[in-house]
Write a protein that binds this DNA or RNA. Sequence first.
DNA 1: GTTTTAAATGCAACTGTGTTGCAAATGTAG
DNA 2: CTACATTTGCAACACAGTTGCATTTAAAAC
Lengths: 133, 133
Amino acid sequence: MNPSEILFSHNLKRTSCREGIIQVIGSNETALSEQEIRQQLEGNYDRTTYFRSFKTLEDSGIIHKIVVDNQTIKYALGAYNKENRKHAHFYCSKCQKVKCMTTVLTPEVPMPEGYRISETNLIIKGTCNNCNC
Amino acid sequence: MNPSEILFSHNLKRTSCREGIIQVIGSNETALSEQEIRQQLEGNYDRTTYFRSFKTLEDSGIIHKIVVDNQTIKYALGAYNKENRKHAHFYCSKCQKVKCMTTVLTPEVPMPEGYRISETNLIIKGTCNNCNC
DNA sequence: GTTTTAAATGCAACTGTGTTGCAAATGTAG
DNA sequence: CTACATTTGCAACACAGTTGCATTTAAAAC
């Protein structure tokens, strides 16, 4: 599906900013920050528009937000696998790239009586194969 | 050990701000944000001083920083268990409290050739036993 | 106890992130 | 093409985090 179709299938208006964001995120191996997305996008959109677009796209599950730390936020396509499970993310502290580890699912943690889990985030930090050469 | 002894044993100067931070964090069940620590501290220190103190205390392993999301940062005492492993953290999205789950260690994730892990963060979000009543 | 000195603090200024209200522009259904 | 709801851009703002520098303080040396 192309960006336009993705938006349509989620009942979202097909605006150029949204289509561009999906397009750029979808054509990258690693997750991207707002800055990186802006650099790769043709159109010059307002910062507010980006943030509102990210929120809309995230709410509908088209993209997901990866909070590595309070200064490093990245976005990638998709969100859940077929079983509605989320995956881990790897952050390379040398090249600052974030990769979705789609084969590593977040663990099912047994919780004490009375606790309910809505979401589990697993972030792994280190250095990637490219930076360890 | 009291705050003064803790600082001494880490070769850090025993300033009132640092002692106060350790004191406040140590006397709370849950992890605290900068704001919450400020409210419970007598002395009125500059914001810069807090951030520098947090960094110093974190670098020496006296406290650890918990990044729940880019807007929610908390601090708690200690850092690693005896085996140098880190634990998971639970964030209640109703009461906004963060608890160290010292019994749940971060998983050992098998990585592809060439990857090195320096740190693993596991954040569980949901609602706590208090808020589910 | 006083002096000395390296470290910590307070202050001012600044960057960057994220939010809100409102008017203008745009997508889409009719 | 028109009408309407939604999205966007702009301005303004709140807050987190950082840096340089002068002042103050902790702790070691005397």
